[in-house]
Nucleic acid binder design. Structure first.
Length: 601
RNA sequence: GGGGGCGUAGCUCAAUUGGUUAGAGUCCCAGACUGUCGAUCUGGUUGUUGCGGGUUCGAGUCCCGUCGCUCCCGCCA
């Protein structure tokens, strides 16, 4: 007999009755009746009830063993009597009558209970991550993640993609987020950078002629965390294709994403093709480039209506270049005054000067600003939002950037607070036609608004002839339920257009050569048109697992301050290690309360 | 770097307007119990109320500072 197990804890059924078997696992629960002891033994596969009777030599030892200790149990499988069957357990028709038990590993008292699925303090859960991972909920999330990744691989290979590995120790790229740096021992004063994405490598693989690349790629960015953004590292389904248009990329991604979402969820979801929303339209309608389409509110620009109106606050702002955005909401005219007041306060907390609104009720229009508006203006507004009795239209007025931010937030809040978010639905969309450049108010210069390697729509001609701020890029995002799953682009594979695009953003050719020499040289030796995208794996798993926090789908996440509390990373290193790397520390002065209290005494 | 929230037993939480010895469940420890499956019952241990200062006759509660966690903004080509 195998020293540890002949079966798993999830395996035994009525078929196994009368067999002598061996199982190993953790003590999940104990029910001690004095003259009879039940132990629920748990492993990765399930739970089996072990029965231990007092005539056995190990009975007392088993009574005392703490939860989460590891036991090896040998015994006979017996059918439970009808009245003791547990229909809630897959193994609930049988139980194992122990003949011998080995306590393989004794558990000390636990910092938190494994058999109760509450959220503990994150700090504790992260410090004892292996215990947290034993709990059913997290254990299942990590298994789901593995299955999703396997499915993604299968689907990509099915589409003719080849999986590659690209370097982890590479060079710092000057654009984008802060890099994680790794000092070189052999080259004093030089550093590797961990890749923020394998962007240049995947493009070089296209130049190398591999046609279709993919990778479940680790990406490293030294940026601060969010609920949907793990600090330090995350994974992308990175892909790139040669000789493709934007639509070709969409076709593959729609098939893979829709396929994997419908494989792992029974929620209803948009089928392919996903709706395509120009970036500029998304900002007006939803106030954001990652709209949650589950919320049935579409905003409108109504600046023109207020430009001539007697409502001076708005008219003046519009004359100074501001805009007025209308947020029409159906059927909430009966909300109490306090609802409108609170929402106004919320709008102010977002930086809005106020929150004007009109209420259509009993055949008339009411609200604090109605007296400033003519009948025709009210009619126009009603027409814009298809307002009928019971509807309300909110208005925000400011410069366009602030309006987008405030309205986007208000729309999401209205969706949440009014329970407008359709449940059990995945709504996908493409955001397309991102601007190639934007104007940086701080430096008063034109910069890349997204990816400098993207192909401008209109190519070289557009770069030469158009106002840079008018040029759109073949740059796209895929968004699901308000979560940005990924960005991608058709790349700029023409050296001339590349130099031109960089010169518009203020980079002379020498600098382009210095920074992106590897790639631009490759483009001078025969480069195929190519493009790709990189959906975030963690975020897909998060959506499919129904989690709102990305740490719930990562086995060993760092905390918000990019620390691994279990492995104690980052940590100091020895003098010897620093010497070998030619590194001298120049640390910031530490706050030392002892010193300051001494000083004050 | 900035803003919000939270911080009470190992864990989950309570504690009236600032009022007496800070409670309950769970875990843990001891005992009882032969059919439970979140076993049950009896008893017990567990506290610098994150830390420091202040106001007050009196602070878990109010104020200031600080630390930690978290959510958000900045940041994320």
């Amino acid at each position: 007999m195998h020293p540890y197990r002949t079966h798993t804890c999830g395996q035994l059924r009525a078929d196994h009755v009368a067999q002598t078997v061996r199982i190993s696992g953790w003590v999940f629960r104990k029910r001690d009746h004095g003259q009879l002891l039940f132990i629920d033994l748990r492993d990765h596969y399930g739970i089996t009830q072990v029965v231990i009777t007092p005539d056995l030599s190990f009975f007392e030892e088993c009574q005392k063993v703490r939860l989460e200790s590891v036991l090896i149990v040998t015994g006979q499988v017996v059918a439970r009597s009808e009245d003791t069957v547990n229909p809630a357990m897959p193994t609930g028709r049988v139980e194992l009558i122990a003949e011998s038990v080995t306590v393989e590993s004794l558990a000390e008292p636990l910092p938190f209970q494994v058999n109760i699925e509450d959220d503990g303090p994150e700090e504790l859960r992260l410090r004892y991550r292996f215990l947290d991972l034993r709990r059913d909920h997290l254990h299942k999330n990590i298994m789901l993640r593995a299955q999703i990744i396997a499915s993604l691989r299968r689907r990509m290979i099915g589409h003719g993609f080849t999986e590659f590995q690209t370097p982890i120790l590479t060079s710092s790229s000057p654009e984008g987020a802060r890099d994680y740096l790794v000092p070189s021992r052999v080259h004093p004063g030089r550093f590797y950078a961990l890749p923020q994405a394998p962007q240049q490598f995947k493009q070089l693989l296209m130049v190398a002629g591999f046609d279709r690349y993919f990778q479940i790629a680790p990406c490293f960015r030294d940026e601060d965390a969010r609920a949907d953004r793990s600090p330090g590292e995350f994974y992308q389904l990175d892909m790139e294709m040669s000789y493709v248009t934007q639509d070709d990329v969409f076709l593959v991604v729609e098939d893979v994403i829709h396929g994997v979402f419908s494989e792992f969820s029974d929620w209803t979801m948009d089928g392919a093709p996903f709706v395509r929303i120009p970036y500029a339209t998304a900002l007006v309608k939803y106030g954001t480039d990652k709209p949650d389409l589950r919320i049935p509110i579409e905003m409108q620009d109504v600046s023109d209506v207020f430009r001539q109106s007697k409502f001076n606050a708005f008219r003046g702002a519009v004359e100074k270049g501001g805009v007025v955005r209308a947020i029409p909401v159906k059927g909430i005219a009966d909300k109490p005054r306090s609802f409108f007041d609170k929402l106004g306060e919320y709008a102010q907390s977002l930086g809005s000067k106020g929150l004007a609104y009109l209420v259509w009720e009993g055949g008339v229009v009411k609200g604090p600003i109605v007296k400033f508006l003519s009948e025709q203006e009210l009619k126009d507004l009603a027409g814009r939002g298809n307002m009928v009795d019971g509807d309300v239209m909110f208005f925000v007025c400011d410069m366009v950037g602030a309006v987008n931010r405030i309205c986007g937030d208000l729309r999401a809040k209205l969706g949440r607070d009014l329970d407008l978010i359709k449940p059990n639905v995945f709504r996908f969309c493409w955001i397309v036609d991102f601007p190639m450049f934007e104007f940086d108010e701080e430096t008063h210069s034109v910069t890349f608004s997204h990816n400098p390697f993207s192909m401008p729509q209109g190519g070289m001609k557009a770069l030469c002839e158009k106002d840079p701020l008018e040029i759109l890029a073949y740059q796209y995002d895929i968004v699901c339920n308000g979560v940005e799953l990924s960005s991608g682009a058709i790349r700029n594979h023409s050296p001339e257009a590349m130099y031109k695009a960089f010169s518009i953003a203020g980079y002379p050719p020498e600098e382009v050569d210095r920074r992106f020499g590897g790639m631009i040289n490759a483009f001078k030796l025969g480069a195929p048109p190519h493009g790709g995208i990189a959906p975030g794996v963690d975020r897909m798993v998060m959506l499919l697992a129904g989690e709102t926090n990305i740490r719930e789908v990562i086995a060993f996440p760092m905390n918000q301050k990019a620390q691994d509390l279990m492995m104690n990373a980052p940590n100091t290193v020895s003098e010897k290690q620093l010497r070998e790397l030619h590194i001298k520390l120049n640390l910031p002065l530490e706050k030392k309360p002892e010193v300051s209290s001494q000083a004050s005494v």
